[in-house]
Design a protein around this nucleic acid. Structure first.
Lengths: 134, 134
DNA sequence: TATTATCCTAGTTATCCGATAGGAATTATA
DNA sequence: TATAATTCCTATCGGATAACTAGGATAATA
């Protein structure tokens, strides 16, 4: 199950994408999408620092997409918001970590299944961009 | 990312499946798979109550599969150990719950993506049985 | 009856999720 | 230039959940 952070983040990105070429202030997204204002603030900050969003301070300011929606892939967004796409770190492409309970990954009975799950999810996320959520 | 409970549970089931037709005591699984004994105990208890395992108390006792490994589907195991397969409750087949922030699911921008993720995972789990992990 | 198991309820501890607080910095505009 | 509107940033907090533990009851075997 994905976190609310991820859910809110995706909804916010979609909202901004729909209002492209305009500044979208936090308050507007928060109200429209029923997202706690301060929580959303921290999420948008993260998305900006991760290179998805640009921002402008002050009156008339807000957030905007730095790239075309069709160039924003769910793989990248999900990794920032939710973390690893893989179900276990030992099969993660971007967040690899060794298991402490496993001696050898190649002989681990879960390995094959975990890779299948990872790849199934990757396939979906690689073939979906923000444009598809608009 | 799946919980350790799920990971341990799957490993334990596999271990038992490999030693089919024999009683397998907790202690043996715990040591072989590097799983904390008491934690594993609670997991096996759950798997028994959920109908995957049978048990026998006392000397020479232990756990055994109630069905053929090839009849134990990952969909069922995962739902017990990990909970919903869907990434959000509002697209879950077995654990449905309405979103509190969404008015209408049919117009939610995430809906389609979430269903795709759910179905991708379902596809893997429906086509994998415990036999495949052996 | 001693030993080896599971059964069961109830903890404990640590981490993380979701959300909030409060002010600093920046910008537009009246 | 004053004011309002906005993002920026750090810190914090309560509650839930994950991971694990304790300790005895119960049952089977030899």
């Amino acid at each position: 199950m994905i976190s609310k952070k991820t859910k809110y983040g995706l909804k916010a990105l979609t909202y901004i994408a729909r209002n492209d070429k305009q500044m979208v202030p936090i308050a507007l997204i928060a109200e429209s999408e029923n997202i706690p204002h301060k929580f959303l603030e921290s999420i948008l900050l993260l998305l900006r620092k991760s290179g998805f969003l640009g921002s402008k301070k002050g009156k008339g300011g807000g957030y905007y997409l730095l790239k075309e929606a069709s160039d924003i892939y769910m793989t990248d967004v999900m990794r920032i918001l939710e973390g690893p796409i893989a179900p276990v770190a030992c099969v993660s492409l971007n967040y690899y970590e060794k298991c402490d309970d496993c001696e050898d990954e190649t002989t681990c009975s879960l390995n094959k299944l975990m890779i299948q799950v990872r790849d199934a999810n990757l396939h979906v996320f690689r073939n979906t961009t923000l444009e598809d959520l608009k």
